[in-house]
Design a protein around this nucleic acid. Structure first.
Length: 583
DNA sequence: TAGAAGTATC
């Protein structure tokens, strides 16, 4: 557990680490009063809230409950302690503290906290975590405000409950759960379930393998993927023409950054390749920015007289988009309509609009947006927004952002992009307004998270924070070293990338240096031997500063770096990136 | 007895 603020002193960090190891209330009390005395933590709510929230996610969540109780009884003038309630509720669930769970619910019911969906949703999740489906339902039925999160929690709870109560489960039961996890963006849970299924002796079949490969592809864990690949061969899992295994393997290797391996698997498919096999390979080339390779494969497919479908064209257009092949993209957008008589779907429009926008043809992109036979969706407006930002069209960006927000008010990325644009041109008042709008609507920015596989283990990083505490301090030192080394070579931090309205450039710079992908990179440099590429997976799009940072590191440290961001792969080598700054 | 659960997507 650690405080996330970059300005936190090393002393405070060490003390908090110490706190994390306490097992009794008296120990927590002792150290906490020491922190107050030495001014490491004031009795102000913010630092206590951080402590409690940190504890609630730590390996010993009961400490959050203890500290909260301690604060309530011993520090009477503590303002804002109610902000810690959701963390305490979470901690009750995680530490299986039934008695405290009932107590805190009684407290919530008596106060205005009952009208805060953030709090009541936490209560629902707590009961579900504790296996109390009926109690969760009772709270759900009675809570005054229900939002999407409330419904999602309940569905997940019911699903898990049904699954847990089934005494006899077969491979289909497990596969249903695994694919539900993948669909709900919980690939790690899906992989865990697959392992559990193997452990209890259920033999996987083709669909279960396909599901878990999809989870692994999302995670980018190539070692796990190789293990499944070996398992398929050793156990002669069905690889007939009707199977999806070929395409799932190609997809897995491509999304794990091993495009050559994906291609090798594609070529070695022994049965007559089905459309899915081709589509996976074309889409694989697309995320690696290999536009020409995708086109070549498409032509080969045509030669083989295989009829492309809408996903083939989406892959192809996306490949042209990521490869910067503007003319080719427009040509194939026509081809699908004229030669193949296909009606483009919203996704095809999205792709071609994005392609035109990136290439600087913003007017043409807008023309299509306003004249297409379908209603433009949020992704199209986001494409227009990105293009406008890239070419400094503030007014178009503003219109596009507002349309996107109107269509999906809960999508934080639209607000972030808009705020990003205002920040870029220094309109800090507008940045503030966007932030207020987000706050009012309860929209929260998705935190950037990067992961890296080192020595058989996945290490995750959030901004300024290694999930594995042991890594944290070394990584911070390494980043400092890297920044100074790069500055000597001309690196200038791109402070426009910092979305917060921070006045001081120093503070902006330290925020920037702590981006999760830089943390993962520093960790990789320290722990991955020379000659072996450093693979990083990021949940969001890589920012411009991190992109140029990686380019420079690849040159100065003579390392190959492969980053998979939300959209595509970036292969950094000798100072340049495979995306040619086109992403 | 077969079937269910499964891939590729801006």
């Amino acid at each position: 557990m650690i405080i996330t603020s970059s300005s936190t002193s090393v002393a405070a960090n060490s003390t908090i680490i110490l706190l994390d190891k306490c097992t009794t209330l008296s120990q927590v009390r002792q150290i906490h009063s020491y922190m107050i005395k030495t001014n490491l933590v004031t009795t102000h709510s913010l630092s206590v809230a951080k402590l409690i929230s940190g504890f609630s996610e730590s390996s010993n969540p009961s400490q959050a409950v203890m500290l909260y109780a301690h604060m309530l009884f011993c520090v009477h003038d503590l303002k804002g302690i109610e902000f810690s309630v959701p963390s305490v509720i979470k901690a009750c669930g995680r530490s299986r503290a039934f008695r405290e769970a009932h107590q805190i619910l009684a407290h919530v019911l008596k106060t205005r906290l009952w009208y805060d969906p953030f709090v009541t949703n936490s209560v629902v999740r707590m009961w579900l975590e504790l296996g109390e489906i009926e109690l969760a339902r009772k709270v759900f039925d009675r809570m005054p405000v229900r939002d999407l999160i409330s419904w999602n929690s309940l569905i997940t709870g019911y699903l898990r409950d049904v699954f847990m109560t089934m005494k006899v489960k077969d491979v289909v039961t497990w596969t249903t759960m695994i694919s539900a996890c993948v669909l709900n963006h919980r690939p790690r849970k899906g992989l865990d379930l697959f392992r559990e299924m193997l452990r209890i002796g259920i033999r996987p079949d083709a669909p279960s393998i396909v599901s878990v490969l999809s989870a692994i592809a999302d995670l980018g864990f190539v070692e796990e993927g190789k293990w499944i690949h070996t398992y398929i061969s050793a156990n002669k899992i069905d690889r007939s023409g009707s199977s999806f295994i070929g395409s799932a393997l190609v997809n897995m290797y491509a999304k794990c950054g091993q495009i050559e391996h994906a291609y090798h698997v594609f070529r070695s498919i022994s049965h007559l390749k089905n459309i899915g096999d081709w589509n996976s390979m074309i889409s694989g080339f697309a995320i690696h920015g290999l536009g020409h390779e995708a086109i070549k494969l498409f032509l080969e497919m045509e030669m083989a007289e295989l009829k492309p479908d809408d996903i083939t064209f989406l892959g192809l257009l996306s490949a042209c988009n990521h490869g910067g092949l503007t003319n080719e993209g427009q040509f194939y957008f026509q081809t699908m309509q004229v030669k193949y008589n296909m009606v483009p779907k919203i996704q095809h429009y999205g792709c071609i609009i994005d392609l035109l926008g990136r290439a600087g043809h913003l007017q043409e992109a807008l023309r299509i947006t306003y004249h297409m036979p379908l209603e433009p969706d949020v992704l199209i407006w986001k494409a227009i927004l990105s293009a406008s930002m890239k070419h400094n069209k503030v007014e178009t960006a503003r219109i596009a952002a507002l349309r996107a927000i109107e269509l999906d008010p809960e999508d934080s990325s639209c607000y972030v992009l808009l705020s990003n644009m205002y920040a870029k041109v220094g309109m800090w008042d507008e940045v503030g307004k966007v932030r207020t709008m987000m706050k009012k609507r309860g929209v929260r920015k998705i935190p950037g998270c990067s992961s890296i596989f080192v020595n058989g283990k996945v290490h995750e990083f959030l901004i300024g924070k290694a999930m594995d505490l042991g890594d944290n301090e070394n990584v911070h030192c390494m980043i400092e070293e890297m920044v100074s080394k790069l500055k000597l070579e001309g690196y200038e931090p791109d402070l426009n990338q910092v979305l917060l309205d921070i006045e001081e450039d120093d503070e902006k710079e330290s925020q920037l240096a702590l981006h999760s992908e830089k943390m993962a990179l520093a960790f990789g440099l320290m722990n991955i031997p020379h000659g072996i590429p450093i693979h990083i997976v990021k949940n969001l799009r890589i920012c411009c500063d991190c992109h140029s940072f990686m380019q420079m590191v690849s040159k100065i440290y003579k390392r190959r770096i492969v980053v998979r961001d939300q959209n595509r792969f970036h292969h950094f080598e000798n100072g340049s990136c495979s995306c040619n700054d086109h992403w």
